[in-house]
Write a protein that binds this DNA or RNA. Structure first.
Lengths: 158, 158
DNA sequence: AGTCATTGCGCAATGC
DNA sequence: GGCATTGCGCAATGAC
């Protein structure tokens, strides 16, 4: 969201475009030789001889052709790649976890069904028996059971 | 500590795409007034009469300064952004799904525990009663129960 | 001050 | 032709 009718394409600095190149030297560009043309080197930060720490200015402009720059880039590229790989892996793992959990869920649900069934059978049996007893002789332990407590097949937890 | 980059995978943005040759050039881009050097025309990829549609050669080299090019880029950038947003959203959703499933899992597990408990209580009661009966009078329906079937609290599915 | 890790972004190739 | 995906490099920023 947000797009203006403008074709900006570049990372401009805070007002100072730091672009510099040229000198297509050799540097081991095993990657590829690039070259940019513009050469805009910002003047020194401040004509002053002093440098105030609490200041908030851009640091040394980075030289694109610098050896260090290239090295830094390369390292970062590597790090980026690593990071992305890891990120992707994680996403994949998460997805798999979902599948596993789903399976587990089904398993549990099946178990619940089974237990419920067992329970209901047992309860019915029990009730039936209790009736029989009541029909003939006064129950002994049967009455102790408190059927109301165990007879709710529909277990409602929260 | 890791490895050294040694691949020549480079598709730098600035430097044109290195399709299959080592042609690269181009310049930068800028936002404000920076001139570019739109002079970059890779030679024809195939030296031949070409003109065969079914051929698999690169098409006209794209001009960076072309209006259409810019437009195409802009569109793609938009699409990319959208795609990435969606991707991220999806990952997030998946993560949440994991959480939900985990919760559900716990719930189910608790329920199982409860049912198991109920079942065991009922069974014990039942057995006890059966014993009582056996002690006094020969059982009637109690024998029909086949305790072995219902007494495995530890339900082991597959 | 120095390093790696993350992240937004644009480019280009490629898959529909 | 067009959008969607994806890998990649760059740069800013975060976390040590």
């Amino acid at each position: 969201m947000s797009k203006q009718p403008q074709k900006i394409t570049n990372t401009e600095q805070n007002g100072v475009s730091v672009i510099q190149s040229q000198a297509h030297s050799s540097i081991a560009n095993s990657t590829a030789g690039l070259q940019q043309v513009p050469q805009l080197v910002p003047v020194s930060p401040r004509g002053g001889g002093k440098a105030s720490p609490p200041s908030k200015m851009k640091k040394t402009i980075l030289d694109k052709d610098s050896d260090e720059y290239r090295q830094r880039r390369e390292r970062n590229n590597l790090a980026v790649k690593k990071s992305r790989m890891r990120s992707k892996q994680k996403a994949q793992d998460t997805q798999q976890r979902v599948n596993e959990l789903k399976e587990e869920n089904e398993r549990l649900e099946a178990k619940i069904k089974l237990l419920s069934k067992e329970l209901s059978v047992l309860k019915d049996l029990f009730l039936e028996h209790a009736h029989n007893l009541a029909d003939n002789v006064p129950p002994a332990t049967a009455a102790t059971v408190a059927p109301g407590d165990l007879c709710n097949t529909n277990n409602s937890s929260q």
